[in-house]
Design a protein around this nucleic acid. Sequence first.
DNA 1: CTTCCAATTTTTGGATCCAAGTGTCAATAT
DNA 2: ATATTGACACTTGGATCCAAAAATTGGAAG
Lengths: 227, 227
Amino acid sequence: MKVKATDIAQMASASDVIFDALRAAIAKGDIAEGQTLRQDHIARMFNVSRIPVREALTRLEEQGLVSTQRYRGAVVTTLSTEEIREIFEFRALLEPEVLRFSVERISEEGLEAAKRFAHAFATETDSSHWGELNRSFHYSLYEASGRPYFLQTISAALDRVDRYLRAQLVLTDGMARARREHEGILLACIRRDAEEAAALTRQHILGACVSLIDFLDRTRAADDTPD
Amino acid sequence: MKVKATDIAQMASASDVIFDALRAAIAKGDIAEGQTLRQDHIARMFNVSRIPVREALTRLEEQGLVSTQRYRGAVVTTLSTEEIREIFEFRALLEPEVLRFSVERISEEGLEAAKRFAHAFATETDSSHWGELNRSFHYSLYEASGRPYFLQTISAALDRVDRYLRAQLVLTDGMARARREHEGILLACIRRDAEEAAALTRQHILGACVSLIDFLDRTRAADDTPD
DNA sequence: CTTCCAATTTTTGGATCCAAGTGTCAATAT
DNA sequence: ATATTGACACTTGGATCCAAAAATTGGAAG
């Protein structure tokens, strides 16, 4: 055995583990918006001191997932409707462009993988998996683009709105529409029609945005007037 | 005086100061590529312990300005030609879009400010200020876009390539061309011709990219064969 | 009952200390 | 002369400890 573990994957330090766990929890919506993350509390959860926790929180803040005020702790960021709209606008600009690159380069195996994710997404009955499968489908297509920086940026943008997106999938007709639209995107990719695939992706994102904001307007209005 | 300092700008903690200083130093190219940043060394420079230094380095890594290997310290990231090309491609997609939004919204005062930066850039003789003035000119135009997330993302991308960009301005004919191109962009903005301004910005970025990569190919080839 | 203020409790940012991993270089064996 | 090994110094990730800032509590005054 020539290849050591450290060559393939750097052994994860405590702060890496905490960072990933918190990031996933925020993306999935397991940690409520506006909730304060107490360093000591998290430290006890992971059986470590506060030092690696602080490092993880620092990274989360750099990613925009929490916002910190000096001596007042880290709070899961609440995005305004405008901020959400901007991030979707951002995705609607980047993702079609990435897909254009991918369509030119993706292999048959890559298309097969995307097809499997689309199928898994369409047939999954446990709604808690929808968000993950949705993301996997799109990423499986984007990965062939050979644009790591684009992917990383898209990923960061998606992390910020993931919990809203998941809610929109589950609590509206988002799932049914996403299923149809994925089908269309996939077929365009198989036909190697980059422009069509890009246009459909753009519509897919902007459509989800409209639906999500409509949904948020209703729920947030209801929250503000609970009487 | 009703407004306290803490209301406008959160009092900077030690790690903030260190982070900003290191980020600026890397962007300006004051810290050489590939150089290892020793926690203890930086800590002594700022008269603090290693804890806030580690926080700053963590944030720099999250921004992609340094890369860390467990127990081996933080090294200023060296970008390959391909990575640089991708980041310019990224900017060439985002910045024209942001400028489109700006042109619709920018005030006369905003245009005046941009004009002043363009003039300052064109007449500055100290080449060490060119990079900063170049950035100020573009930002003064982008700020009116009302797209904070776009701006933040562009800023992060620019931080990664800033030191290369500065070298290209100073060590090639980049400065002369940038001056002309700024003029064109500015005039298009004043005419409120969003499409023209966007197209010129895209050319401005892609042109700089070609010039920079050509420059890097020559210098790096020379570095690799120093005999 | 409400409002204000001081004392106490939390909680954070940072300093110091410790264990574990890495790099170096001289001594030894081939 | 070159490759191997092992001791030692260096550096990092993390634990523990401390001071300062914030939140909270409880009582006194209106």
